[in-house]
Amino acid sequence: MKWIRELKRRWMLYGLRRKHEWLKVPEEISPDKRVKLLRRKLWNVERRILKITGKEPDRASWRYSQKRVEQVCELISDRCYLLNQLFIATPAEVERMEQVNARLYDLTQKMYRRSAELYRQILTRSRNEDFDDDIVVEGTLKFSRNDRSSVLELENDAYYGSDFYRMFSVIDWLFGNEYSDFEFGIEEIESCGKNLDRSDTPDSTDKELGFDDWSDDGTTWADGWLHHPALDNICICHAVHDVCTHKPYSIPDVLRMNDFWCEVTVRYQHIVEQDGSRMGWWEHCSFEQFRDKFYKEAVHRPSELRFGQFIFNRTVAIFPGEAEALRGGTHDCFHDDAKTDDFLEAIYDKLQADL
């Protein structure tokens, strides 16, 4: 689904910056007229979205049309821009922003702390040598749009006039985690993670283990639309910044988010090649074993490739940095089969030195 990956790239680069002429409102009109005009434009955008998606966006066939998905993606961007223009920061909204900001900050800290706790537990456990090629600890914080209870109804919903729940449903499909297989997902609001490093010790600090929230250091993340005078007294955390700046949610949207999912997982991975070689196999073999593995693979190489060419291409696929560094040098077997052993030994020595 290359076109979906391209849409994600386009969104990240241009989505929140789109300011088409028809979205702009004349500065000389009165505040009341400005609000009415913005609201009318917002209604028009959402009507156009629902005309494409239908009233049940999760079930309609529009999701399988590249053209329609592109149109909805752009309209969602327009909607975000208009809602941020409409945001007036009433006392109730400022209070709610303080609440959401505090909640997301607290969840972020819990995610990091629990991830570090589980990582320390892994360090103290014995390793199952028959299975554990790698162990990964990952923490994630997400907004979870489940049902209508996930989107709050607030006192000034009528002022904005947005169909918040249906729009959240559209955004959830376009950018949500459930569809990250298409590489189009927003994925998490915050995340942390680490592959097991046996050189770590359980008595190390969270920071030493790599589980510190370096982004929330007491400096506000009030960029873009969050740089609002009414929000100046709030130290905006990175999670709120991420939702409002890097994702297609407006400030009014964030104030209505009611389901946050914080999760820490541990993955035990067993990774094996067809010949039985396991992840990091080169760390535990002699040079002769290292060389023989590639020689055996070369027996079944495509007929158009010479022996040295196959060995070079195969090692580039596995050890790109080490193999490419030898291209054109005295050990380059791509152009001279006789240099194959020297080429493999140079790679083997570099890998062993890096252990």
Results as ranks from 00 to 15, higher is better:
Asp242Gly: 06
Thr220Gln: 05
Ile236Asp: 07
Trp282Ser: 03
Thr265Glu: 12
Arg267Asp: 13
Gln269Met: 05
Ser277Gly: 04
Ala230Thr: 08
Tyr268Glu: 08
Val240Gly: 05
Ile251Asp: 04
Thr245Glu: 13
His246Met: 06
Tyr249Asp: 02
Ile251Arg: 07
Arg256Thr: 07
Phe260Ile: 08
Asp213His: 14
Gly224Lys: 11
Asp206Lys: 00
Gly210Ala: 05
Met257Ala: 10
Ile234Lys: 05
Gly224Arg: 05
Trp261Ala: 11
His284Phe: 04
Ser250Leu: 03
Lys207His: 10
His227Ser: 14
Gly224Thr: 14
His238Asp: 13
Trp221Glu: 02
Cys244Tyr: 08
Trp282Arg: 00
Asp217His: 06
Cys237Thr: 13
Asp217Tyr: 05
His246Asn: 14
Gly280Glu: 09
Ile251Asn: 06
Thr245His: 12
Arg267Tyr: 15
Ile236Met: 15
Thr245Val: 10
Arg256Lys: 05
Asp242Phe: 06
Pro229Trp: 03
Gly280Ser: 09
His284Asn: 07
Gly224Ser: 13
Leu231Pro: 11
Asp242Trp: 03
Ser204Asp: 09
Met257Ile: 11
Thr220Phe: 01
Gly280Phe: 02
Pro248His: 12
Thr219Met: 13
Arg278Lys: 05
Cys262Tyr: 04
Tyr249Glu: 09
Asp216Tyr: 03
Cys244Thr: 07
Val243Gly: 04
Ala230Glu: 15
Gly210Thr: 02
Ala230Phe: 11
Val240Ser: 07
Ser215Gly: 01
Ser250Val: 03
Val240Ala: 11
Cys235Gln: 12
Ser215Phe: 09
Val254Asp: 01
His238Gln: 13
Pro229His: 02
Asp259Met: 08
Arg267Ala: 15
His238Tyr: 14
Ile251Pro: 03
Asp242Cys: 13
Thr205His: 10
Gly224Tyr: 11
Val243Phe: 07
Asp223Lys: 13
Thr265Ser: 14
Ile236Gln: 09
Gln269Ser: 01
Cys235His: 11
Glu263Asn: 15
Cys262Ile: 08
Pro252Cys: 01
Pro229Asp: 03
His241Lys: 14
